[in-house]
Nucleic acid binder design. Structure first.
Lengths: 104, 104
DNA sequence: AAAACATATTGACAAATATAAATATGTGTG
DNA sequence: CACACATATTTATATTTGTCAATATGTTTT
């Protein structure tokens, strides 16, 4: 089992909230600092910080600290991992076509 | 914008819960009926039904009704859509390398 | 060192979600 | 048609999650 159930939920939790999805859209134009994201999103600073933590935990976003600023960007490697993960969990290895059911 | 933020959250909500991820693992062996899933999972029938609804809403799982039984399977088309969606939301279209930040 | 600033953390609360018991719906069978 | 059975829905509740205010941490500037 390449990915644990828990790992999978952590990865895709990044994409389960509309605000976080919107943050991805902002990061698609390239690296952005937290203050920039804060201006664009209708969120308070602590809430943004909370979402950025979830995004970084997922591996889909990378945080780079530079002085007092945090710069965030989409991780190509993280995206690759998520892609592999999605492919792995949706792959069907069926050989038989009949549905396994409790009523025989 | 090919996918709305809302659509994206609905798709990936399927993979945000450990029980639902486990259901994917069961379905990877081929189509299964609800009663079979219920035997394998440590859930009550209403809870399983609730999760199956979320999975079907995501498009990643298909429900097929046959008499009084519901047969569930992973949707190859749904998986393809999710893949495209993941690719789309993690794609970076940056031309500039410098980080856009509020401090100029 | 003090002040100003950017971000993170804590604590409290509201909203959303997962869960199960009870009930409803729909389907096959006697 | 009555009954048994599989699944869905409703209702209530516990847990999780998103949110913000207040505060803490760490960095730069004066």
């Amino acid at each position: 089992m390449e990915f644990s159930n828990k790992q999978i939920t952590v990865i895709f939790k990044a994409l389960c909230d509309e605000n976080r999805v919107q943050i991805f859209r902002l990061l698609q134009n390239g690296e952005r600092c937290a203050c920039h994201l804060l201006e664009e999103m209708a969120l308070t600073q602590p809430t943004l910080s909370h979402h950025m933590k979830i995004l970084c935990d997922s591996g889909l976003v990378i945080g780079r600290k530079q002085g007092k600023w945090m710069h965030y960007s989409i991780s190509a490697e993280g995206a690759e991992v998520a892609m592999d993960c999605l492919k792995a969990i949706t792959a069907v290895t069926e050989s038989e076509s009949a549905s396994k059911c409790c009523n025989k």
